[in-house]
Computed example of a mutant assay.
Amino acid sequence: MSLAGKTLFITGGSRGIGLSIAERAARDGANVIIAAKTADPHPKLPGTIYSAAEAIESAGGKAMPLILDVRDADAIERQVNEAASRFGGIDICVNNASAINLSRSEDIAVSRFDLIQQINMRGTFLVSRACVPFLREAKNPHVLTLSPPLTMRADWFADHLPYTLSKYGMSMVTFGMAEEYREVGVAFNALWPRTTIATAAVEFSLGGDEMMRRSRRPEIMADAAYAIFQRSARDYSGNFVLDEDILREEGMTDFSGYRFDPAEPLEIDIFVADDGQPVA
């Protein structure tokens, strides 16, 4: 099933995983709305909504860059409507926008606590809700949220409670809406990487160059997302899956091509239990 002519609304897609998902869809000839805050170049982080739009069109798709802060409920409604009007609807919503802060409970400022809840959980809810009226009218509509399985491990909560609440909140939105919209055929699924992914968040918030070298490239998440979009929305909803597991279901066994640095061992990502199985 090609994504040619399909319209994707992707939050936070000016770089990293979101941009990689956008470029993968664009190779089929998809329409991609890049809805993110980065309109001007950041001194440290690569990419803007405009450079992302250029990359999408270079890959073969049609792009619409939109400046969007997912904390702004009114702006979400306006821009989802604008995007749907431009391309005649929305077929796929990708909740990629996310903020990270791994502080412990006594160390995080209240303003930072509020920020990650507003962007992660609240933003996911508002964007998903705004897209639903258009998804109802689409053929094989999908909402994909980049959030972890709902594994209730106390140590993951204790280590970074504010961030865990925000990411699990994204997953709970997915869990609830999957059932709420099951009868109308809108799929809600969550995707998470088994290993760390070589993005700006990993480089600047988690472990610098060393962690980047122990990561996989964002293309693994893009290929896994693409595989999910191929599945029947009525039959595949309410799932919490890892990128590697989805690709194994598609018949892939060799993941070495995704390594950022083939010489380095891979780092298991946060919220993923080390099952003892080797990572290739």
Rank of each mutant, 00 (worst) to 15 (best):
M1F: 14
L3F: 14
G5S: 11
F9W: 03
I10D: 00
T11I: 09
G12L: 12
G12N: 04
S14L: 00
L19E: 01
G29I: 09
N31C: 13
N31W: 08
V32G: 02
V32L: 06
I33N: 02
A36G: 04
P41S: 02
H42K: 06
P43C: 03
P43K: 03
L45T: 04
G47N: 08
I49L: 08
Y50A: 02
Y50T: 14
A52T: 10
A52S: 00
A52H: 08
E54S: 10
S58I: 14
S58W: 06
G61D: 06
A63P: 10
M64A: 05
M64P: 01
P65S: 11
L68D: 00
R71V: 14
R71D: 01
D72P: 12
D74R: 11
R78G: 02
V80S: 00
E82S: 09
A83P: 12
S85G: 15
I90H: 00
C93Y: 00
A97H: 01
I100Y: 13
L102I: 13
E106D: 08
E106G: 06
D107A: 15
D107W: 10
V110H: 09
S111V: 10
F113A: 07
D114H: 09
L115C: 08
I116F: 09
N120K: 13
R122M: 12
G123I: 14
F125G: 11
S128T: 12
S128C: 13
A130T: 12
C131S: 10
L135F: 00
R136F: 14
E137N: 05
E137Q: 14
A138F: 07
K139R: 11
P141Q: 03
T145L: 01
S147D: 01
S147Q: 07
L150K: 01
T151A: 04
R153F: 12
A154V: 13
A154C: 01
A158G: 04
L161Y: 14
Y163Q: 13
K167L: 10
V173F: 02
F175R: 08
F175Y: 14
A178G: 15
A178P: 05
E180M: 07
Y181E: 07
Y181P: 02
E183K: 12
W192P: 04
A198C: 09
A200Y: 00
A200V: 02
A200E: 03
F204P: 01
R216V: 08
R216F: 06
I220C: 03
A222D: 02
A225T: 15
A225L: 11
A225K: 14
A225D: 06
I228D: 02
F229P: 13
R231S: 12
S232F: 13
A233K: 08
D235C: 06
D235P: 10
Y236N: 06
Y236F: 15
N239V: 04
N239S: 12
L242N: 07
E244M: 12
I246V: 15
L247Y: 01
T253C: 01
F255R: 11
G257S: 13
P265W: 12
I268Q: 04
D274W: 05
D274V: 10
D275P: 04
Q277P: 02
V279P: 00
A280E: 08
A280Q: 04
